[in-house]
Deep mutational scan, measured.
Amino acid sequence: MKVIFLKDVKGKGKKGEIKNVADGYARNFLFKQGLAIEATPANLKELE
């Protein structure tokens, strides 16, 4: 799953980066902790 990092995550990505991560990792950790959001077309447009 592609995500947009909202904060730096050690060993995974830095704020503003778009990366592929495991679905479970994204849903169970990154999204719940507010560290990333899903890289949907709408979210990508907001990032620009």
Rank of each mutant, 00 (worst) to 15 (best):
M1A: 05
M1G: 04
K2E: 10
K2F: 14
K2T: 14
V3D: 01
V3S: 00
V3E: 01
I4T: 02
I4W: 03
I4G: 00
I4H: 02
F5E: 01
F5L: 07
L6T: 05
L6Y: 01
K7R: 13
K7W: 09
K7V: 14
K7N: 07
K7F: 12
D8P: 05
D8R: 05
D8T: 10
V9M: 04
K10T: 13
K10H: 12
K10Q: 14
G11N: 10
G11S: 07
K12S: 14
G13P: 00
G13S: 04
K14R: 13
K14N: 09
K15R: 12
K15L: 09
G16P: 01
E17A: 06
I18D: 01
I18F: 04
I18Q: 04
K19A: 10
K19G: 07
K19D: 03
N20S: 14
N20H: 15
V21P: 00
V21Q: 03
A22H: 15
A22W: 10
A22Q: 14
D23G: 12
D23W: 14
D23T: 15
G24E: 15
G24R: 12
Y25I: 07
Y25K: 07
A26Q: 07
A26G: 05
R27I: 15
R27N: 07
N28D: 14
N28M: 10
F29V: 15
F29N: 06
L30Q: 00
L30M: 03
L30R: 02
F31D: 02
F31L: 13
F31Y: 05
F31N: 02
K32Q: 13
K32S: 10
Q33I: 08
G34V: 03
L35H: 04
L35E: 02
A36V: 07
A36K: 00
A36G: 05
I37G: 01
I37F: 03
I37S: 04
I37R: 06
I37D: 02
E38L: 10
E38I: 07
E38T: 05
A39N: 03
A39K: 02
A39P: 02
A39D: 02
T40Q: 04
T40Y: 05
T40N: 08
T40W: 04
P41Y: 10
L44K: 05
K45E: 11
E46L: 14
E46R: 10
L47G: 08
E48V: 13
E48I: 14
